[in-house]
Amino acid sequence: MCDTCGCNITPGNEHLIVNDGKLSKTSSGGEAVEVLQGLLHENDHQAMHNRQHFDQHQLLAINLMSSPGSGKTALLEATIDALGDEVRIGVVEGDLETENDANRIRKKGVPACQISTGSACHLDAHMVHDALHQLTLEDLDILFIENVGNLVCPASFDLGHHRNITLLSVTEGDDKPAKYPVIFRAADLMLLTKTDLLPYLEEFDPTRAEQYLRELSNPAEMISLSAKSGEGLKHWLDWLRHELKHYRRHLATGTTLTPALQPDGVALHQHTHSHNHTHNHDHHHS
């Protein structure tokens, strides 16, 4: 991708390429090349293109991350029930196998695309890009990307989304943010789910869960809710409405949203090259 648009030549490395470059010789007579690229350079580049697609269609993309079984799909079902008449929702489902989750979403009358990752433990920007072809983006206001249930790997891959949400179900233990700091540090919002079970789980202290989040130096809001009982759902829906408005205001001024915290490579990539290069696509996005 970068070889076609030339954006891999950055202010950080162009001196190496322009005018024969200032390539130092190593002691053995080899050539040393300073690179300074994020290790996920290709992914980050694809993610940036995905974000451009979302923005062209004024589509707020939200990445949902959590361990398996924390209630991501149940949350989406409850959200569609409550918000379906007001906001046009689409869902990309990531799982190792099966169409089960996409089928649950489709039953709610909402378009869903299942990505079966095989053995891959996370979604990457290329997989999400492929999924976008199967959705009619202009018919949607919010796209939820339900990442593979995993509290480690999804945190490292930018998908081009605008917001990160990390779910923590009360059956998991309130110290999860301390155990998996990278993914909870990335959260723009932490959702405490299955709170209808709190009366049975004396050992889970929501205040302590929030304290562990703060110790990651993360100021993100924490919302407690139960998709089953509906408790706290209004707060979550208001958050979504607010983010959608906030996103559209950004688009109106010619800017976009990115998660508050981005992987190092992404930040480097975005700061070091212009965003207005031509987007050469040999395919059409519906």
Binding site: A32, H41, S156, S217
Partner: peptide, 21 residues
């Protein structure tokens, strides 16, 4: 707790050396 990260989230390809013999 409201601190700013100075370093620690790097995932960088710093440099490579090549043999051209």
């Amino acid at each position: 707790w409201r601190t700013q990260l100075v370093s620690g989230d790097e995932m960088l390809l710093q440099s490579i050396e090549l043999d051209k013999s």
